[in-house]
């Protein structure tokens, strides 16, 4: 449960930072990066709660859109796909964030990615950094808890 609440606070911090950047005109989808990182450290049902809560907060209109579906479903897909990837956890996490951001950009507007590669790269870089921090901190929490129980 400790890890779950740690994840909750990380997601909350991601939203706060995301809205702070948005108010300055910078699009940095940190909550999506956090959700993808959660796919590598949480169990499915915990991840489902995070994805549903994040979709509830990020939804901007009274209708479901392809972008919102991609935002909520990609982390769940990453959770299933992680067992087929034999890379180190941090590397798989970084690759998943890259794939997730590309998929989300295509879901928003297929043509916009080529026209705005600069802002996409800024968004991706911020997501990779935040996602790596979330992954490493939660992995450490998991290892520490394991060590505690072993002791």
């Amino acid at each position: 449960m400790l890890k779950f609440f740690a994840g909750f606070f990380i997601l909350l911090a991601a939203f706060l930072l995301q809205f702070l950047f948005a108010s300055a005109g910078i699009a940095a989808n940190l909550s999506f990066a956090a959700l993808i990182s959660f796919a590598f450290v949480f169990e499915f049902w915990e991840l489902l709660v995070f994805a549903a809560a994040a979709a509830f907060i990020i939804n901007w209109q009274p209708a479901i859109s392809p972008a919102l579906a991609a935002y909520a479903l990609f982390p769940l897909a990453a959770h299933f796909l992680r067992r087929f990837v034999r890379w180190a956890g941090w590397l798989a996490n970084a690759a998943a964030i890259l794939a997730g951001f590309l998929l989300l950009a295509l879901a928003i507007s297929p043509g916009a990615l080529a026209a705005h590669e600069g802002s996409f790269l800024v968004d991706l870089a911020a997501g990779e950094i935040f996602g790596a921090l979330a992954f490493l901190s939660l992995s450490r929490t998991t290892r520490a808890r394991g060590a505690l129980f072993e002791a």
């Binding site: 049902w45 549903a52 809560a53 979709a55 509830f56 939804n59």
Partner: peptide, 16 residues
């Protein structure tokens, strides 16, 4: 967890 996820999903769809 399932109940919490369902609650969030229902809110997202019916009471955004």
């Amino acid at each position: 967890f399932i109940a919490a996820a369902l609650a969030f999903l229902l809110l997202a769809v019916f009471e955004p």
